[in-house]
Design a protein around this nucleic acid. Structure first.
Lengths: 168, 168
DNA sequence: CTGAATTTTCAATAAAAAATGAAAATTATT
DNA sequence: AATAATTTTCATTTTTTATTGAAAATTCAG
């Protein structure tokens, strides 16, 4: 397979994977394009290569920057902004984890904690079923939350280092 | 908060969370309803409580059964089918993991392996950038794949047991 | 076997999400 | 300050995804 074709297929697949995980397909494709680019790209490069509008390119680039997995880059003597992706895949993973945790898991934990305080007699089987399920989900989510914090923070963590060694 | 209200809020929140992760909102809501029900429910219960059509209820129930997180249940002397959710949250998590791994991660791994075989001179910076990025993503994904297998399989696994103890 | 109850399918419709593109805003250059 | 280049916004349109509901298929009881 030629490089251009391989790159296109990566962009395509990354887009599909993203959309299956609730990430805008185009955002994932822009990310894929930047990940596999040897250098930084400008908005026009992205518009051209993905055949998308300026507005669309702009919005998705901004979102990738919000997620801290793409940076704006200044190129001397050029008025345009350029963009480049973080290529350390471990950093990419932890940053995505951090964003999703913050936006989704943390709010869900708050809700679950509140729901455990439901009124009524715990011997009522309906209430029992409810609080037991919600309680176990909350405990599970809280553990996941803690584990993610560990992964996100610790570059010096033993487990993480072992994991990273395997990746070279 | 009263039970009915709490339950409704759980259904609502679970639906939102699901849709953020690429799972049909209604499917997540049906799951939430069954998770917090004291017993099994039939299609009509679900239609009524979620205000959805029979076709919709049927499709989403089937999908939950495909995922092995909801079971069909026979109630003696009743012609209707009933449904109940697996309530062991660890089992639910590993089964969802298994399905998503199989449907999404495994195919992606195949694609990535193929893309690493791109033609051309490795000293070409474009090819170098591409294969390095794709290679590191593939290694990362392969490690995630292995880790998930461990979690999914091993009830006897030390790490998993530690994790589960914390959850009671 | 018959027919009533129940489940499943799927073409048509509705709802939700994403993309466009041109106008407005911002930024840099002379 | 004027203007040219670039970026951002957002109302409108398009595309994608989900839902409906009635017909067809299936299942079961007598």
């Amino acid at each position: 397979m030629k490089l251009a074709e391989a790159r296109q297929q990566f962009v395509q697949s990354w887009g599909v994977l993203g959309s299956q995980w609730g990430i805008n397909r185009t955002m994932a494709q822009v990310h894929a394009l930047l990940l596999t680019a040897p250098g930084a790209l400008c908005t026009d490069d992205i518009m051209e290569q993905l055949k998308i509008s300026r507005g669309n390119a702009n919005m998705n680039l901004r979102e990738l920057i919000n997620w801290s997995i793409v940076d704006r880059v200044i190129i001397a003597g050029d008025r345009k902004e350029y963009f480049q992706a973080e290529k350390d895949i471990w950093k990419v993973a932890t940053r995505i984890m951090y964003q999703r945790k913050k936006r989704e898991l943390d709010p869900m934990l708050k809700v679950l904690a509140a729901l455990e305080l439901v009124e009524g007699d715990k011997r009522n089987p309906d209430i029992k079923a409810f609080t037991e399920t919600v309680g176990s989900i909350r405990k599970f989510a809280a553990q996941a939350d803690k584990s993610m914090d560990t992964l996100i923070k610790a570059e010096e963590n033993w487990f993480v280092n072992q994991f990273m060694k395997l990746m070279k």
